[in-house]
Design a binder for these strands. Structure first.
Length: 196
DNA sequence: CTGGGGATCGAG
DNA sequence: TCGATCCCCAGG
């Protein structure tokens, strides 16, 4: 990690969700909680394409209390509770009229964790939130504002296009035609990738 | 009001 | 393959 790591501009998020999902690989999640700082580099993401995507929480234009953060503009956090025990972190993309988002599925520990050498510590969206202390309390935060306790940073880390793999998303077998769309992206061969 | 299901995880 | 664990929401 370079010395300088800055929040991504709002423009980064206000565009194609698939491109956003690809370009978030290598970026850094920062969470300040209880005076401690947790940092991790994103290694796996999934794009969720809004009203036309059966796997997406806003499919068909659903606009319930749970998903209201997805109707914010790009660059805000959408966090939901699942299976009675886990939270999942998403980055909202595009604008208020297109409720799309990128699910952060895995990351590599950088700072603040009990075992920095364990590449499996953040290998999965539920584990990532559990270990980084991310809960519903962070839902709706602006990930571009230096005032937020939860941020996504760019330290200049670059990936080659050939290092990025695209595959169908995990856990969306119910999504009919959308279940095989190649919207899961991850860094080829990385030790922190969630299991398939 | 109700009940079925879920963008998960880890044990067996 | 299965259980833990509980919020969410569509349907009645």
């Amino acid at each position: 990690m370079k010395l300088t790591a800055l929040p991504l501009n709002p423009e980064f998020y206000e565009r194609s969700t698939e491109k956003g999902a690809r370009d978030l690989l290598g970026k850094i999640i920062f969470h300040k909680y209880n005076g401690k700082k947790y940092l991790a580099r994103i290694t796996e993401t999934e794009a969720y394409l809004g009203t036309q995507d059966r796997a997406c929480h806003t499919f068909g234009g659903r606009k319930t209390e749970r998903v209201k953060s997805m109707y914010l503009k790009g660059g805000y956090a959408y966090i939901y509770f699942i299976y009675g025990m886990y939270f999942c972190l998403n980055v909202v993309t595009r604008d208020e009229t297109c409720p799309e988002a990128v699910l952060i599925r895995a990351a590599e520990p950088i700072q603040g964790f009990k075992d920095l050498e364990d590449p499996r510590l953040l290998a999965g969206p539920g584990k990532l939130c559990r270990e980084m202390k991310i809960t519903k309390a962070e839902d709706g935060l602006n990930l571009s504002s230096k005032k937020s306790s939860l941020l996504i940073l760019d330290d200049g880390y670059k990936l080659k296009k050939s290092e990025i793999i695209a595959k169908p998303r995990v856990g969306v077998d119910y999504a009919e035609e959308a279940k095989n769309w190649p919207l899961r992206f991850y860094i080829s061969g990385h030790k922190s990738i969630s299991r398939t």
